[in-house]
Amino acid sequence: MYLAVAVGGTWLFWLPAIALGLQFDSAVGLVLLLVGLAVPGVAGIAFVYLVYDERGQADFWNRVVNPRRVGLRWLVVILLVPLGISVLAGLADLLLGGAGLAWGEGVTEFGVNPLAILPALFFATLPPILEELGWRGYALDRLQLKWSVLSASLILGVVWALWHLPLFFIEGSFQHDAVGFATTGFWLFMAGIVALSVAFTWIYNNTERSILGIIVLHGWVNFTAEIIVAPDLLYYGLWFVLAAAIVATWGAKTMTAAPEVPHPPLPTDA
C-alpha cells in the first residue's frame, strides 16, 4: 500500500506538469516538483505512525538523527564507494580509448558563475532527504519482513525506478534534459537504480538501519555523479558489479554477517 501511495501520490503532481506543458524551472513547475518529491517521505512518516507503536516511532526518528548507527567504518564506505565508482568508470573509459574523467557542467562554470554549482548541491541535499524517509525509512523494513533482502531490494529498486518515469517528460529535469526517454541512457538509468537499491540495502542493514546514513549516501551519489562525468555504460555497469559482489560476499538473505535481518521493534515483540 505504501509503494502505491508513494508512486501514485508523486505522479499526481508530476503528471499535470506534463499535461500542462510546464517546466520545472517555472514557478508552478517548481512547486509541483517539490511537492511530488516530498510524497515518499511524508507518506513514509505517516505509515510509520499508522503501523508502529511508540517504540517503532521512536526507532524511526533515532535512525534519522543518530550518527552513531553509522560509525566511522561505514561512513568511510559511504564516502568512498560512490566516488570510487565514478573515478573507476572514468579510468576504465580512458583505458578503452575514451576521454576518461570529465568535470560536470557546474564545476566547469563555477569559476565564472559560482551559482552554477547549485543544481548539484540541490540534488545532493533535498531529494535524498525527501525520498529516503520513505524508501528506506519505511518501505525497505516492511519488504524485508516478507522477502529475502535481495528480493526486497529488487522490488524496491524497480518501484524506485518507475517513480522517476514522469521526469523524463518534463523540461528542466535532469532526466529530460540530460538523459531523454527511451534512449540508451534511459535504460541504463532505470536499470542502474535497481543496482543502486541493492548497494543501499547493504549499507542500510550494516549501519543499524540508519536513515541518516542512507540520506548521506544518496546525496553523495547524486553529487559525485553531477561533478564527475563518466560514460553511463561503465558507470552503471560498475554499480551492477558492486551489487553482484555484495550478494556473493554477504549473501542474499541478510547482506550482513548476522544470521537474521535487522528489523524495527514490532508491536508483537516482547
Score class of each variant (00 low, 15 high):
186 F>W: 15
183 T>S: 15
30 L>E: 08
172 G>R: 06
34 L>E: 08
179 V>H: 04
30 L>V: 01
213 G>Q: 06
165 L>T: 15
147 W>P: 15
255 M>G: 03
151 S>L: 10
255 M>W: 08
79 L>R: 15
154 L>E: 08
113 N>W: 08
85 I>W: 07
86 S>C: 11
24 F>T: 12
127 P>Y: 03
104 G>Y: 13
87 V>R: 05
146 K>T: 14
263 H>L: 08
151 S>H: 11
99 A>Y: 11
165 L>I: 14
215 I>L: 01
46 A>Q: 03
53 D>L: 02
262 P>E: 14
42 V>Q: 01
204 Y>I: 04
194 V>M: 05
119 P>E: 06
197 S>H: 05
266 L>W: 07
133 L>S: 08
84 G>P: 07
137 G>E: 00
233 L>E: 05
196 L>I: 13
137 G>P: 04
100 G>H: 09
144 Q>T: 14
77 V>H: 01
172 G>I: 09
85 I>Y: 04
24 F>Y: 13
27 A>Q: 12
19 A>T: 08
227 I>H: 15
99 A>L: 11
195 A>N: 05
264 P>G: 11
123 F>S: 00
1 M>P: 12
52 Y>Q: 01
261 V>F: 07
232 D>I: 09
38 A>K: 07
39 V>Y: 02
238 L>C: 11
82 P>I: 14
34 L>S: 03
266 L>D: 13
204 Y>R: 02
151 S>W: 06
245 A>C: 00
171 E>G: 09
231 P>R: 00
47 F>E: 13
240 F>C: 15
42 V>Y: 03
83 L>Y: 09
163 W>G: 04
203 I>D: 04
258 A>M: 03
81 V>Y: 02
201 T>A: 12
162 L>V: 12
154 L>R: 11
120 A>E: 08
161 A>H: 00
170 I>L: 12
143 L>V: 12
155 I>C: 07
106 G>A: 09
147 W>S: 15
142 R>P: 06
265 P>A: 10
91 L>A: 13
63 R>E: 03
169 F>P: 04
75 L>R: 04
42 V>N: 06
210 S>K: 14
253 K>C: 10
112 V>A: 13
65 V>S: 00
74 W>F: 12
64 V>T: 06
60 F>K: 15
206 N>R: 13
164 H>I: 07
252 A>V: 14
118 L>D: 00
49 Y>H: 15
